[in-house]
Design a binder for these strands. Structure first.
Lengths: 227, 227
DNA sequence: CTCCATCTTTGAACGTGTTCAACTATGACT
DNA sequence: AGTCATAGTTGAACACGTTCAAAGATGGAG
């Protein structure tokens, strides 16, 4: 979902300042939530001026973006274990999705603030935006690994599109998760537990005669709709 | 998406003031978009003080709700024709969805700003929020009419849940629409044209042996996940 | 070393959504 | 008519995210 926040090369000193601002933001986000962590408070915590914080991060949302990048990195790392342990599609998909819920749990409180970016089309932070291409494709690649390492048999047309479709599924789960106020996001975990086997069964049904025709149409629709 | 903003009985004078604030907001939203329409500008345009505007609308977002309500009302009205003309499910669903694209077209330009705020779970503008319950249920009811007036044959469990599922489909189309920069949102119209027949075919497949079991699981999942 | 262009840093100032204590108008009841 | 609680109204004040002109630091060229 996230985009890269300024990947230009920088001096070590500047990079240090930049990191200290991120760290300060992290601490305040964690301790007091998004609203409490004002730009003034973040700047003070980092030992810089407000204007200086804006020199490195063009908005408070870009600061949240840096936060989100860490979640993505942690999720990629946490996904390695289920991808190594599980061999069937069901287990692999479930493992990766639950890993995300685990990794993201500490950030649930202010995830909504970040999610605002997802809906603003003009924002470079939107998961569908040009600027997010790299991060999005990394996430899609993760889903391709889920499929490729599994026992799943698919028609070729669907196999090519499925990683992106699974990424969309994940976006849907994130949407549910953002709205999930249950303790430890238990309901989201239930959703993953229950829906993954259904997805698995549905995908195996796609080779059924009578179903295959519809699947071909869906693949055709995706091709037509893609930019 | 939004709900009715405060349906309590009021004196005619107060109701008049209330309406003049809404009207002023509409004019400014239309002419200059969301950001230009500041609460100060809206209050001045309505001939009241800022504090008075807040007496009637507890936040700027609640004011936007009134805006949403008008789109929704216009859509409900525009849906009557296809619901009267079309008899098959395919035509009814297509007619209602395209009616939405038609009705919403004038607002596409600043829809992104609106939806950005609506995407935040804590926002009253969120289509999933408590405040939006009335509007959401009206929209779901519209989809129930699509089904009930059509020739579609469904298993009972699915029939009960389908209106809400179709509403979710509509939310997905709205998401696509928000990101759609093509002239007159042609791509969204194409999406509707192409996807509705596929949905139709998929629903008719649900009675196929081998598919029905999965459908039952999906219905069970929905029951488990609903609050 | 001197110069100068560029990178970095500052904090006051701006406009925003929102709040609130104080004020006025309304209308029901004596 | 007088009283008084409630509804309605006001605009200054608050805290916030953000901007900007100005100042300071850095480092390479001559």
């Amino acid at each position: 979902m996230a985009t890269v926040t300024d990947p230009a090369p920088r001096s070590s000193k500047a990079e240090q300042t930049r990191q200290s601002i991120i760290d300060a933001a992290m601490r305040l986000f964690r301790s007091g939530g998004y609203d409490q962590a004002t730009m003034r408070a973040i700047a003070e915590e980092a030992g810089v001026s407000v204007g200086n914080a804006y020199y490195y991060f063009s908005s408070k949302e870009h600061l949240v973006q840096a936060y989100y990048d860490r979640i993505q990195a942690a999720h990629a790392e946490a996904s390695e274990q289920p991808l190594a342990d599980e061999t069937d599609f069901n287990g692999r998909l479930r493992g990766v999705l639950l890993a995300w819920v685990d990794v993201a749990e500490p950030y649930h409180e202010f995830a909504g603030k970040f999610f605002k970016n997802a809906a603003e089309p003009s924002s470079p932070l939107s998961p569908f935006s040009e600027d997010s291409t790299a991060a999005r494709e990394a996430a899609i690649e993760l889903h391709r690994r889920i499929i490729d390492g599994s026992d799943l048999k698919l028609a070729k047309g669907l196999r090519d599109e499925l990683p992106e479709l699974l990424w969309l599924l994940q976006m849907g789960i994130v949407l549910f998760w953002v709205h999930d106020t249950s303790e430890g996001q238990r309901r989201t975990r239930d959703l993953v537990d229950q829906s993954v086997p259904i997805i698995d069964r549905m995908l195996r049904l796609t080779r059924l005669p009578g179903v295959r025709g519809v699947v071909d149409d869906v693949v055709g629709l995706i091709h037509m709709i893609r930019p």
